[in-house]
Write a protein that binds this DNA or RNA. Structure first.
Length: 803
RNA sequence: GCCGGCGUGGUGAAAUGGUAGACACGCAGGACUUAAAAUCCUGUGACCGUAAGGUCGUGUCGGUUCAAGUCCGACCGCCGGUACCA
């Protein structure tokens, strides 16, 4: 019979489902393995090939770990709240709930057809009230612990649609939907105090096994920098301006000060500013700039504030003050001491406006540009000669003693804006009472259901569409029972994906976020794989939320405060032309087509074979054929099995080498070389007349993580009644892996001239040396020469140096 | 600009400092076939040579070493992340 992929794939997918082969329970005698992939957002386009790559890789690992005797949890769910669905709903006037249901049916079909060994009994949607009840519960706990608060924040505002946009909706500085200009606008928002966890989010990275580049991304995103806050007094007023600097050692070189356009002191000192009208004009045009314009126009510009000057505390010199939009309001104090000699931006600004450039650290050439490195202090009075490090310490001590400043730490990371003026998200479970203020909803009333509405558009002034649902908005105050109103903002996309991996441990629990016993067994996640695009925000946010849940005891102590033991990332899948797949470029590939044409096993093996897992790959038709041929060959080989046969030593050797290599390669995510080894073994077996049952079984088992359907079918053909998923990963025999003899190369003066077959592990000896030197091809190069060196590295090489 | 990663046949790619190009695609020739597809066999880095064999060859230029795709230095190119973070 010929290999019929579709037929056997349907058969085994049914079998796995009906027999709940991959559904797991806590089994305390067994070692657990929690394999996690990023759950998909069920978009209308269906499963992306990138998902397929990640899910296949973890499926291979999960299946291998099962065979290794572990209790493997490999769950799946859907991250179903979000903007694309909401925008789709607005455009087509269809309830997002309906679009979601439809999309999920499609995703489920696709995921099933690829043969992933998910525990479907644990699947949920983040839009399930039973799930977002706990998303809301977490928010309330954050509020109760002072980590959720309201504040005025600048948000992206589309001037055409007149609505607030999430960062991900601003593409290239314009509105993703209408192409309209996006500016910053102040609005009251909910924020989460992630900055309180910044230090732990850095230091606890020591405890986990993440790819180094991922750790680095986390650290860079948090952006911790140590420096000093320094007070500059002002002439003609008692006000002061605080600046932040990482280089207090350059204080003598501060020749002007620059304020961000948003700096509050300007409003306060209006009366003292002689050119207030020009200053206000400058501020107005700076604020009106879109992000796009700010990015495009990188040339620094500013305006001097006439009438007040700042006084450098170290030498009492008056220096001019500028307002300049290269100074960010959102970092540090929104004001800087400018040291043109030792900062590139300040240098550029000083050149443009003809300001003093005073060198205070030696080591550079100030005429040609700023010197930003460390060095020795010069032009710094009594501090001259100190190194930058010594100088920093001394000057901070001096500032502190004179109450002019102090050591400070700053972060790039900001508190996390956690509200959206949208519909399709978890309602923020807060109530505004005119008497009692802003209070959390009573926990017994959770979940606060998202009401069904007809019009999903935000209001003209940017309020959430929920604000139009008066019978939902109007409620009672949980404290005084008087009339009160619900918070109408909803949570961002991230809310549901922050903690979903916890819920997989106990997805149906209605009394607790998670049963501590179950959490204790399954958590932390042993191995989390996903895309690099989620290794900053999602990873950081979910680590933060997990730490918080750990702190309040919602996650048991024994689990620890890090959610993921190990995190890896697959390379991107590029479309035709080696560019990112995107709808607008029309190069998106739907995995369905390949699965239909070749079957899931072929697609799985192909995706794993095409290149190194962590590198970007370009998907094309080249190579799929080869994998399909390989599986056909495997199928045909099964006809050669024979009960009576005993395999040759050579067959056993290649088999045991393969068991070793495939097993190790899977653990290291070197899937491509694992498959090439399976191909080598297949080609080898193909040359044999008969194959023993025992060898064939081992082959089928090591193939099974990659091509589970064909493996199950071949296993059944051998007369087994049960799925091979309950079998054991074969052991390799160390003795058998080594061949008796080994061929090694012989070099003369670095050039390969011949090779010789020696018994394995032959130690260097006079005898071998003599033998080699008597070989014809070697004599050709050595006979009339003097042998300077004779090197024999066991099992590796023989290298002769002649003169 | 800064921070990562990468650069090897016509193509995807292998290679703990130890015989570069495993494995696969494609291509060429052959077998089977009325024919095609499928399958099988042979060849396939470049150059010289009928062959045996030789020379060159892992982005470029240098260095370390008996030995470098791999280590070190400088440079060029591509990809990804980030962006005025004081």
């Amino acid at each position: 019979m010929k290999y019929q992929a579709k037929k056997i794939e349907n058969k085994w997918q049914e079998y796995w489902k009906n027999n709940e082969i991959f559904n797991v329970k806590e089994e305390h005698k067994k070692k657990k393995f929690y394999a996690l992939v990023e759950f998909p957002y069920p978009s209308g386009e269906g499963l992306h090939t990138g998902h397929l790559r990640s899910y296949t890789a973890m499926d291979v690992l999960a299946r291998k770990k099962r065979l290794a005797g572990m209790n493997v949890l490999y769950p799946i769910g859907f991250d179903a709240f979000g903007l694309p669905t909401e925008n789709y709903a607005i455009k087509n006037k269809i309830a997002p709930q309906i679009a979601t249901t439809k999309n999920i049916a499609n995703f489920t079909r696709q995921l099933t057809s690829a043969g992933f060994s998910f525990d479907w009994s644990r699947a949920f949607l983040t839009t399930d009230p039973g799930y977002y009840k706990w998303t809301q519960w977490i928010f309330i706990q954050m509020f109760k612990h002072g980590l959720a608060y309201k504040a005025k924040e600048n948000i992206n505002w589309c001037t055409a649609c007149k609505i607030g946009l999430a960062n991900e909706e601003v593409v290239g500085g314009v509105c993703e939907r209408c192409g309209g200009q996006v500016i910053k606008k102040e609005k009251e928002q909910w924020l989460l105090r992630i900055t309180k966890y910044a230090d732990r989010l850095i230091s606890d990275l020591d405890q986990v096994d993440f790819l180094e580049k991922i750790k680095k991304q986390q650290i860079d995103w948090i952006g911790k920098s140590e420096g000093a806050e320094i007070d500059f007094s002002l002439t003609s007023t008692k006000e002061k301006i605080k600046v932040f600097t990482t280089r207090p050692d350059t204080l003598f070189g501060a020749t002007f000060m620059a304020l961000s356009p948003e700096h509050e002191i300007i409003g306060k000192l209006k009366a003292n500013i002689n050119n207030i009208k020009e200053v206000e004009d400058y501020i107005k045009q700076a604020k009106g700039k879109s992000d796009l314009e700010r990015i495009e126009n990188k040339e620094k510009n500013g305006l001097e504030i006439i009438g007040i000057k700042a006084v450098n505390p170290i030498n009492n010199k008056s220096i001019p003050i500028f307002v300049a939009d290269y100074v960010l309001t959102s970092y540090g104090t929104g004001a800087i001491m400018a040291v043109p000699a030792h900062d590139e931006r300040d240098y550029e600004f000083a050149k443009k406006y003809n300001l003093e450039i005073k060198e205070v650290i030696s080591g550079g050439d100030i005429k040609s540009g700023a010197y930003i490195g460390n060095g020795q202090a010069i032009n710094s009075g009594e501090y001259n000669g100190l190194t930058s490090t010594e100088f920093k310490e001394k000057i901070i001590a001096w500032l502190a003693k004179n109450k002019l400043g102090k050591k400070t730490i700053n972060y790039k990371l900001h508190d996390w804006i956690f509200s959206r003026q949208r519909y399709w998200g978890e309602p923020i479970p807060m109530i505004n009472c005119p008497k009692c203020g802003c209070l959390p909803e009573e926990e017994k009333n959770l979940p606060i259901l998202l009401p069904k509405i007809k019009d999903y558009l935000p209001t003209d002034d940017g309020q959430s569409p929920l604000s139009k649902v008066s019978n939902w908005v109007n409620t009672k105050c949980p404290k005084c029972k008087g009339k009160a109103k619900r918070e109408t903002d909803v949570m961002p996309n991230w809310a549901g994906s922050n903690w979903y991996f916890i819920r997989y441990c106990d997805p149906k629990n209605n009394k607790q976020l998670v049963d501590p016993k179950k959490a204790k067994y399954w958590l932390p996640v042993d191995w989390y794989n996903g895309g690099m695009e989620h290794t900053t925000l999602h990873l950081l946010y979910s680590r933060f939320v997990f730490k918080f849940l750990y702190d309040i005891g919602a996650v048991p102590r024994e689990v620890g405060s890090e959610p993921y033991k190990k995190r890896t990332a697959q390379g991107m899948i590029l479309g035709a032309g080696g560019i990112k797949m995107s709808k607008s470029k029309g190069n998106v590939i739907n995995p369905d087509i390949y699965i239909k044409q070749y079957g899931a096993d072929t697609v799985r093996v192909y995706e794993m074979f095409i290149g190194p897992f962590d590198q970007a790959i370009t998907l094309n038709d080249q190579g799929v054929n080869g994998v399909y041929r390989f599986l056909n060959k495997v199928w045909d080989l099964s006809a050669k099995t024979d009960k009576k046969i005993k395999d040759s030593d050579e067959v056993l050797r290649v088999l045991h080498q393969s068991i070793k290599k495939v097993g190790e390669d899977i653990e290291n995510m070197h899937f491509n070389t694992a498959i090439s080894q399976l191909m080598i073994l297949t080609n080898f077996l193909d040359k044999e007349k008969k194959i023993s049952i025992s060898s064939w079984e081992k082959f089928v088992l090591i193939l099974s993580p990659f091509a589970p359907h064909i493996a199950e079918e071949l296993w059944e053909k051998l007369g087994h009644k049960k799925s091979l998923s309950a079998e054991k990963w074969p052991q390799y025999d160390k003795q058998l892996v080594q061949a008796d003899s080994i061929k090694i190369g012989i070099q003369v003066n670095g050039k390969l001239r011949d090779e010789i077959s020696l018994p394995y592990d032959s130690e260097p000896s006079q005898k071998i040396e003599k033998q080699i030197l008597s070989m014809d091809k070697i004599r050709k190069y050595t006979d009339d020469k003097k042998i300077v060196k004779f090197i024999h590295i066991k099992n590796k090489i023989i290298s002769i140096v002649v003169k």
